[in-house]
Amino acid sequence: MNLRQIDVFRAVMTTGSTTNAARLLHVSQPGVSRLIRHLEIQLGVTLFERRNARLIATPEAHTLQAEVDKVYRGVQHVQNVAAHLRFGDHATLRVLSSANTALQLVPGATAKLLQRFTHSKVFFESLPTREIVQTLVAEEADVAISSAPLDHPVLEVREIGRWTLQCVVPKGHPLLGKKKFDLATALRQRLVVYSPEAPQSRVIDGWLEKFGIARQVAVEVRSGYAACAMAASGAGVAFVDNLSARAHRSENLTLIEIPDAPRFAIYSVTNVNRPPSQLGQTFLELVASELAGFS
């Protein structure tokens, strides 16, 4: 039996007549009758008895119907899987991120993704830059959002937005009494700085060093959020990305806008050998949209 014969046979069994089956399938009644007769000849059994212009299904027809229904359930499953592939439903997404994008940016995009694809599942992990590269190269994750550029031959790195540098100080700090923010004065304070392993270290330190002011290091941290926590506690003045500053939300922390503050890229990262699924592509679009709202 081919799929067309299965379709017609099931329609006749469901509706009880070739006329109703033809109406259901939007074909001619004679065409349905011919196909049923041909199927009976092909199988060598009588599927329907004709009584007073009615079709009565034989026991053989009922046996066949049970198998046909199994096929239909299988076809329906295939159609459902195909729909899930297209729309992301019931799919999974493995997401990595650097520390500062893990605070609000990635969670916000993830929440919106799951509102759209309610049966999908996201596996999320915040990792150091080196581990993000290793995991993506090993194809153990689908996509990463990073505030530092990543370099590897099999990784596709795209800029999706930018973050801005801000100065954060504890409530009541003398810098807040000035009418205009003085970067040189801020750099001469006790500072919270980043360890070399932190993704912000290279870009922030590189920008600050060009001013040629010797810095008094009070605390060394590995994340912008930790820098905010230290500054809020009075341990020192910190220069942080606006993603971390927004997420900290401490009453003891004050954010100072830096005139002509530098802006640095945020990247989406994928493995060129494993392009994003529809779910992954939608996630990246939502991240970019979220990021635009942070500006």
Rank of each mutant, 00 (worst) to 15 (best):
R37M: 06
I132L: 14
G88R: 08
L85H: 11
V75C: 04
L286I: 11
I213G: 03
A247G: 10
S277T: 14
A186L: 12
E197M: 09
L284M: 15
L284G: 02
V217F: 02
Q200Y: 04
L243E: 05
V32P: 01
Q104Y: 10
V8M: 09
A66E: 13
G234I: 05
L253F: 05
L114S: 03
S250A: 13
L243V: 04
Q5T: 14
S201L: 01
S147D: 15
M13D: 02
A83H: 12
P170V: 08
L136E: 07
I41T: 11
A109H: 11
G236E: 11
L113V: 04
G280V: 08
Q189D: 12
Y267F: 13
T18N: 06
S201I: 01
E139Y: 03
V68M: 02
R249C: 13
S146Q: 00
D142W: 09
A186G: 07
L176N: 07
K180V: 14
S33K: 03
H26K: 15
G236V: 05
T118M: 07
L85M: 13
W163G: 08
N273I: 09
F48V: 03
T185R: 13
I132Y: 12
A11E: 04
L93S: 07
V154C: 07
P153K: 13
A21Y: 02
T101C: 15
S33V: 09
Q79T: 01
V32Y: 03
F87T: 14
G234A: 06
R34N: 12
R158T: 12
R188D: 06
A61D: 03
F294L: 12
V71S: 01
F283Y: 11
E257I: 05
G293L: 10
E290K: 01
R130Q: 12
P149I: 12
I266M: 01
L24E: 11
R222E: 15
L103R: 05
V133M: 05
A184T: 09
F283R: 06
V71E: 13
F48W: 05
P174I: 10
S28P: 01
K178T: 08
Q65A: 15
F181C: 08
L253S: 07
I266E: 03
P59Y: 12
I258T: 12
A83E: 14
R162Y: 07
N273M: 15
C228D: 04
H84T: 04
H62C: 04
H119V: 03
T118H: 10
R34G: 03
A226P: 01
P259C: 11
M13N: 01
E40H: 08
R94M: 06
L183S: 07
D241W: 07
V154G: 02
L191V: 02
K70E: 08
S126N: 09
A245H: 00
A232C: 02
R10F: 10
S98M: 06
F283I: 08
P174V: 12
T164V: 13
A218R: 05
F124N: 00
L114R: 06
T46E: 15
L25F: 00
I36C: 02
Q104M: 15
W207C: 01
A265R: 08
I56M: 09
A53K: 12
L103G: 01
S201N: 07
L175G: 08
P262N: 10
F123G: 01
P128I: 14
G293D: 09
G31H: 13
F117A: 13
I204G: 08
A111I: 11
V133D: 00
V133N: 02
